[in-house]
Computed example of a mutant assay.
Amino acid sequence: MNWNYLILILAATIAGGIIPMTVKRINANFSIYLLAFTGAFLFGIIIMHLLPEVYEELGHQAGLYIVLGFFLQVFLQQLSHGMEHGHTHMPQEGHRHIAVMPLLLGLSIHAFMEGLPLGFKYNDHSALPSLMVGVAAHKIPEALTLITVMMHAHKKRSELWRILIIFALVTPLAAILAGWLGSRFEVVQHYLLYVVALVVGAFLHISTTIFYESGTKHHELSRKKVLAIAFGLLLAFLTLIFE
């Protein structure tokens, strides 16, 4: 377990949450391009590192679990309303109520799932550090969206900090739990591989949704958004040099 990477994920989450608390007016394009970049980077990590790993170990079973993970994420976003890929879903004019608990539950389950593959021992030695960086990058817009929604739910500043810190801890704690159990029980390490396949499916849903839905009018791919996606994929490609 590389504690530096877990600290990076924790810091990235807190940094993402601090942005809406300290910046009075965030340029809408900032979130769009940040999501596009992080989504593309995560997508590239999945395709170049995790997919080969799970198919090598699980064979055709991998596809089944990837599809299950994909549709598990479809279910989870019914709770989180798609905050994983930047959807805020603010209440319409005249409706001030935001159902906070389902949002927090759905996003926290997703964050816990994100952490479990970080405790797995991969044959590809570049897979884990690449995934750690990809998750850390994704945490910035994820936390930014979460705290933005909580601010519109009129949460006090102390509550915002409490929500942010608890949310920031979920993924690192899941990674620590998975790593600790996997190192002591071989059967846990074996079944973690199936969890990795499920999370691959969930990440594929999130990253591909980001490509087409993250904030742009009519969900079009603007030139700047395409550049952000291309830059994210390029950085993911560069992780291959560490193999």
Rank of each mutant, 00 (worst) to 15 (best):
I98L: 09
V100C: 05
M132H: 05
H110F: 11
G82Y: 07
M48K: 12
V170N: 00
Q189E: 15
L128I: 10
L34E: 03
W180K: 12
G17S: 06
L164D: 00
E114I: 06
G106S: 09
P141N: 01
A136M: 09
V226P: 11
V54F: 05
I165Y: 07
A202V: 10
L235M: 15
W180A: 13
F237T: 14
G63R: 06
I26G: 02
L169R: 01
Y194N: 10
W180L: 13
H81A: 15
F30S: 08
H87I: 12
M150Y: 09
L234P: 11
T148W: 01
I98S: 08
Y55M: 10
S158M: 08
L238A: 10
A28Q: 15
W161F: 12
A230Q: 08
A143Q: 10
T88G: 11
E53V: 05
F203A: 13
L34I: 13
S222D: 13
S207W: 04
G39C: 04
E93P: 09
M90Y: 11
F231I: 15
S158R: 15
L50T: 02
H89T: 08
F237R: 07
T22E: 04
P102T: 10
F70T: 09
L51V: 15
H110A: 10
H218I: 06
L79G: 04
G63Y: 01
L64M: 12
G134F: 01
I46K: 02
K121L: 13
V23G: 02
A127W: 00
V133P: 12
L160C: 02
L50E: 00
M101D: 11
D124E: 12
L8C: 00
F167Y: 06
L51F: 06
L221W: 06
R184D: 11
L181R: 07
E114R: 04
G39L: 11
G201M: 03
A153N: 10
L181S: 02
I26R: 04
A12P: 10
V199K: 10
L131E: 02
V195G: 01
I206L: 12
S183Y: 09
M90R: 08
S80K: 02
G63Q: 10
E53F: 04
N4G: 14
V149W: 00
A202F: 03
S214D: 09
E243T: 14
M151L: 13
S207F: 05
